[in-house]
Design a protein around this nucleic acid. Structure first.
Lengths: 91, 91
DNA sequence: ATCGTTGATCGTAGATGAACGATGCGGGGC
DNA sequence: GCCCCGCATCGTTCATCTACGATCAACGAT
């Protein structure tokens, strides 16, 4: 075995393997860019919890955030998103 | 929020959010049907561990297994697989 | 310089996942 | 009947996720 893509696949799948993260990703896809505070407002979770989910998504490469003054602007990484789609449809 | 599909999405994504389960799914897709023992032979895991992964995949609906004498034959559930693909490409 | 806002990080608690060995159970073969 | 094979399940251990409040760091505004 030792499928090289199996692990990459699992990582990407795991990133969205949580309802909150699915919603975050969908939110960012539909909005082009979004400040962290808005995301927190859209979810029934504490700010720290949302921040952790954002960290997980960032580590997977699905999203990226850039500091904009005191705020942080998150947006989708289309490249990784397409990578995920390709892996799934390639099943 | 309360995205009804977010949870379904997360469940399906979580089912393949593990390298071993990705390999199992790929194996079944490529083989049409496969006895449990063959799957165990293809993975560097104990039989009981593989059995648990199969249980998880079965609960997600991605695969289904039918008893065939002393053996159990697993196969992909194309319907759920297409459902997963649709959810991902629909992002 | 101080303060308020924004978001990341820390620390913690409870729940769940992953892996294994051992055991249980049903079906065939002797 | 008895035993072996194939698979599921149980029980356990260790690690990780999830969620939260509290705290910390960076920045802008006053």
């Amino acid at each position: 075995m030792a499928d090289p893509t199996a692990e990459e696949f699992a990582n990407l799948a795991w990133a969205i393997a949580h309802p909150a993260r699915v919603q975050i990703v969908r939110l960012l896809i539909g909005r082009e860019a979004c400040v962290c505070g808005e995301i927190v407002a859209c979810l029934p979770l504490a700010q720290s919890t949302v921040s952790q989910h954002l960290k997980i998504l960032k580590e997977s490469g699905l999203i990226q955030g850039e500091v904009n003054g005191p705020k942080v602007c998150y947006c989708i990484n289309r490249v990784q998103l397409e990578r995920l789609k390709a892996l799934v449809t390639g099943l």
